[in-house]
């Protein structure tokens, strides 16, 4: 295999720049995803009953299970946010983030497909929409796909600057 020929389309200079910039870009991505989780968790944590109702509005599980998930979810979101802020087990946190986001997208998609009139409850509120309000499923899914891209970046390149992970790597 001729390695030089294979990589000749990318100039060595740009590879070098990418190598220097990537860990810092990764830090931005990590903090960005952390901000998403912290915002999502903190808007829900004040009213866990409402969070359970928002889960129940998707109409995919018994109410008691929806209540339990609705109660646990805001705390898990906050915990993910904290893990990402400090950069501990970033790949794992990114993996859990991606899994959660896929579940959210699936939930919104089925609500859309079944014609439910609900608010996704992604950042607080949730439940059925008032008369005259229309759902914004497309936008909600697009937004979640954007967040998935952040998680994907960290799954591929979990080592970022200013993180516990990279500090552990060095010691």
């Amino acid at each position: 295999m001729n390695v030089t020929a294979a990589s000749s389309s990318v100039s060595p200079a740009s590879v070098g720049r990418w190598r220097t910039a990537r860990p810092w870009l990764g830090t931005l991505v990590r903090l960005g995803l952390a901000a998403v989780w912290l915002a999502a968790g903190s808007t829900k944590v004040g009213d866990l009953a409402a969070s359970g109702r928002a889960v129940n509005a998707y109409d995919v599980m018994p109410y008691d299970l929806a209540k339990a998930i609705g109660a646990a979810l805001p705390f898990v979101e906050l915990a993910l946010g904290v893990l990402l802020v400090v950069g501990l087990a970033t790949r794992l946190a990114a993996g859990v983030s991606a899994a959660l986001l896929v579940v959210f997208v699936a939930g919104i998609t089925q609500a859309w497909a079944r014609g439910l009139q609900i608010d996704c409850g992604c950042f607080g509120s949730g439940g059925q929409l008032a008369a005259g309000q229309s759902p914004t499923y497309g936008l909600e899914i697009l937004r979640d796909v954007g967040f998935l891209a952040l998680a994907g970046f960290l799954l591929i390149w979990p080592l970022t600057r200013l993180s516990i992970d990279s500090w552990l790597e060095k010691t």
Partner: peptide, 11 residues
Amino acid sequence: VAGLIGWGVVA
């Protein structure tokens, strides 16, 4: 633990 806290609060 975070998940259990939420669950415990509601319970």
